[in-house]
Design a protein around this nucleic acid. Structure first.
Lengths: 137, 137
DNA sequence: TATATATATTTTAATAACTAAAATATATAT
DNA sequence: ATATATATTTTAGTTATTAAAATATATATA
């Protein structure tokens, strides 16, 4: 029966997928431990750090939400003094959301709680995982 | 300066983490393509398949939500005839949520759109990734 | 130049998702 | 019996999200 071997893979994939799901969640949980930020807020702060700020539309794309939702997300982080809005002078329709100094500090704090060797391991492992992921997505 | 090497790792980790985030999301998106189910609904169906049904509290733990939210999630999938509730006869307080035949079919459909070789690759890659993840979480 | 059209974000009103706490039902211990 | 504990559902209120309209700016063209 040709469907049989297929089904074995399916079961295995499902199981591995869900394990990975949980581990990723756990990892972000470790990062956000003690912070009063939601996972998405944390991830947005990291994105802003990495990209040196983002346009509202870029944030909407990244999280697959509507522009209205982005306004709301950014309002909240702005109230916490973690991000600020900067209108581009070249095109004043565009609002670039960037980290404030406080936002930068917060992002650094999050990682500084790990010892050096742990960070080295994490960096290496994540790099390897991304390479692997490239072969399936 | 001792903080300098640390910061380089941090930047790298953030970048790799966010890439992985996006790839995982993309992978689940590929799975749910064409299905009118949310990501969490899809993941719950897979969990139920893997575990042969789950108690409400187990579902709450898995998704880190309250029991009330689980009732609501299950109500929706029940209306779609994808899951059903079964009271345990040993302890009638416990409700086990299990896939209906329609639910099983749906889960299988989701994977059967991939060719055999692709499934083999995915299974292998996910297995390797999980092994790697074990060293950091 | 005026006018239309396009783009980027915010506002608004309605809906969906979620929470905390109370209610219900069942089980266990004294 | 009675009290206490456990598992789920219900309820009422909050928060997050959406679709669509409003606002502001930019670009194209007659």
């Amino acid at each position: 029966m040709s469907g049989n071997k297929q089904m074995n893979h399916v079961k295995l994939i499902m199981s591995e997928m869900l394990q990975l799901q949980q581990k990723s969640k756990k990892f972000v949980n470790i990062l956000s431990e003690g912070e009063s930020l939601s996972q998405n807020q944390l991830i947005l702060l990291l994105q802003l750090e990495i990209n040196g700020g983002m346009k509202a539309t870029e944030i909407a794309d990244f999280f697959s939400v509507t522009p209205g939702a982005v306004t709301s997300m950014c309002d909240k982080l702005e109230k916490l003094n973690l991000v600020k809005r900067e209108r581009k002078s070249e095109d004043r329709r565009i609002v670039k959301i960037v980290l404030t100094n406080g936002g930068e500090d917060k992002v650094h704090e999050i990682f500084m709680k790990f010892p050096q060797e742990k960070l080295t391991t994490i960096a290496k492992v994540l790099k390897d995982i991304n390479k692997l992921m490239n072969s399936i997505v």
